[in-house]
Structure formats: C-alpha cells, structure tokens
Amino acid sequence: MERGLELHGIGVRFGGLTALDDVSLRVPPDRVVGVIGPNGAGKTTLFNVICGFVSPQTGSLTLDGRPLRPRPHRLSRLGIARTLQGTGLFAGLSVLENVMTGASHTARAGFASALFGLPRSDRDERRLRQHALDVLDDLGIAGHADAAPGTLPFAVRQRVALARALAARPRLLLLDEPAGGLGADDIAELAELVRQLPRRDADPCAVLLVEHHMDLVMAVCDELVVLDFGRVIAAGTPDEIRDDAAVTDAYLGALVEESAP
C-alpha cells in the first residue's frame, strides 16, 4: 500500500540551535501539502533532511512504510525531485538540454556506450530528448527548447526548472518557494499547474510545497503544516489553518502582508 512520505519526530540541532523539534508530517501520494512559517522556522532544514543533506539527531523517515535514509545522489532513483529557490539552471546548456539532465538517471546505456557513441547511447539520447520535449510542451514552453536560459524572462526560467524536475518522473516533488519573483498572473498560472500535478493521468506526483505567498498556498494545498521555531504548531486544511487563532496570533497576518505585492 502506498502511504507516501512520512516524517516521525524529526529533531535537528546545529550546536546549541534547535532547527527542528519533534516534527512529524505525512505527504500522501495524491496530495499537495504545504509547509509555512516565518523565516527561521525550519522549513529549509526540513527539505534538507528529506533530501539527505542534513541527518536528524532524532526521529526517522519512511517511504510507503519502509525506512528511508535519503542520500542526495540517490533521490531521483527514490522518486524524489526538488526545485531550488531561484532556478539553478545550467547557463551553458539550452532549455532542452537542461530538462534532459533531469531524466538522465533513466538512461539505459552505460558509460562505455556513451563514451564510444554506440547505437544504444544514441537511442537513449533520442528517448530522453523526446521525453524532455513532451514535458516542455505540457508546461507550455516547448517553443523555448533551443534557447539559452539566460535569454528568457524569469517566469519562463522558473517553468524550465520545474520541467527539469518533472522530467525525472518523480513520485514526490519538493517545491522550494516557486512563486518567488513572480507577478500575480504568473502565480495564478503556477497555482493551476501545481494543483494538477497529483491528479495527472500520466506521471502523477505528490507535492510538498514551501512558500511565503499565502494566496498560492491557500489555493493549491490540500493540507498545511505550520512551523514556528522548528516546531509544528498547527496542521490541517487551509480553512482550518486560516481559522486557527494560535496561527493567526503568531504570524499568519504578517505572512500575508509579506506576500502582498
């Protein structure tokens, strides 16, 4: 049975600083789960634990009920992909080539085939290229396939970064502040795209979203987890979180003000 990703009592300390304190949450296979909180609440540390960049001192992770010990270089094979704040695109590669790198772990040809240009390597490249083009087309940016990322508007570069992550066919997508630097119209388009990811006919994926733009969070998330000083202070549906007096008193109003243009 697919249970998705679960974190159980995660604790992380850096010296005398507690970054996460007994944090538990679940990302089911068919949901968009948001993590919100002020700067310093522990959101980035949470992502780094899931990606294997930070090892928790306490607690555990499971994937479909089985122990998960993530390592950054093995994330794709686990079915986990992550976008970065900004875009993190390779300036020396075209848009298409950037997206192809997201699916490189699925290549069937080995190192020797690629080194000597053997037919199997050529078939792999054609397959990856077509898959990358299909993903770009799904996101409405296939017309930019041959462009250099640096020549494109920021909103398009954000979509390219998302396409690169989706090219890996992840079961879980970690979105790290994807609305940063976007205008209202672009955020609305992003919301529609993210909302559909778990419900796609082909390659559906759950989403764990960290974001400051509350309009986006409230529009796309099925569930929300609220962090403050590394602790979960509330969890529930967007409506439940919106009406939670403790969350409102702590900082939700301030977050809305920060997200306003």
Rank of each mutant, 00 (worst) to 15 (best):
L208D: 07
P153W: 00
G92Q: 13
P238K: 05
A168K: 10
G236S: 08
G16W: 13
R123S: 01
V99M: 07
L166V: 10
D134S: 15
R199N: 05
P178V: 08
R169N: 11
C205N: 06
G65W: 11
Q196E: 14
P56T: 03
E125Q: 15
D203C: 02
D146Q: 15
Q130P: 05
G236E: 13
V49R: 02
A142L: 09
V160L: 01
V210N: 09
A163Y: 10
A167G: 06
V135R: 02
L7Q: 08
R159G: 01
A188D: 12
A188C: 02
H131P: 05
F90L: 13
I80H: 01
V33P: 10
G15K: 07
V27T: 01
G86I: 03
K43G: 00
T106E: 12
G11F: 01
V220G: 15
V35Y: 09
E211Y: 00
A219W: 07
P170C: 03
D222Q: 04
G40Y: 15
L227F: 05
E240M: 04
A163G: 09
A165D: 07
G11S: 15
R71Y: 02
S24P: 06
P238W: 07
D176G: 11
H144C: 15
L172I: 14
L173G: 09
G102K: 09
P170I: 01
S55L: 11
M218R: 10
R13M: 11
E240F: 03
I187P: 03
A19H: 06
V135M: 08
R195A: 13
I187T: 09
A202V: 15
V160W: 12
A250I: 09
R199M: 06
G15N: 05
L61W: 09
T248S: 04
A206V: 08
L190Q: 11
C221E: 02
D244T: 07
V27Y: 10
D201C: 03
Q130S: 12
G11N: 02
L193C: 09
G102V: 09
L133R: 15
L208W: 08
D244E: 06
G65D: 11
E6N: 10
V217F: 03
L20R: 00
R66M: 04
L252C: 09
R3V: 00
G52L: 05
A19W: 01
L174N: 02
P198S: 13
P238Y: 08
R120N: 02
R69G: 06
I80D: 03
P204M: 05
L63R: 04
R69F: 01
S113N: 14
V12F: 01
G15Q: 05
L182I: 07
A246G: 07
P198C: 05
G180D: 07
G181H: 15
D134P: 10
T87E: 12
G180H: 03
N48T: 05
L96C: 04
I50W: 01
S259V: 01
F47Q: 02
G110F: 13
V210M: 08
M214S: 06
P170Y: 04
L128T: 02
P67I: 04
F47P: 03
R69S: 14
R120A: 13
P70M: 01
Q57F: 06
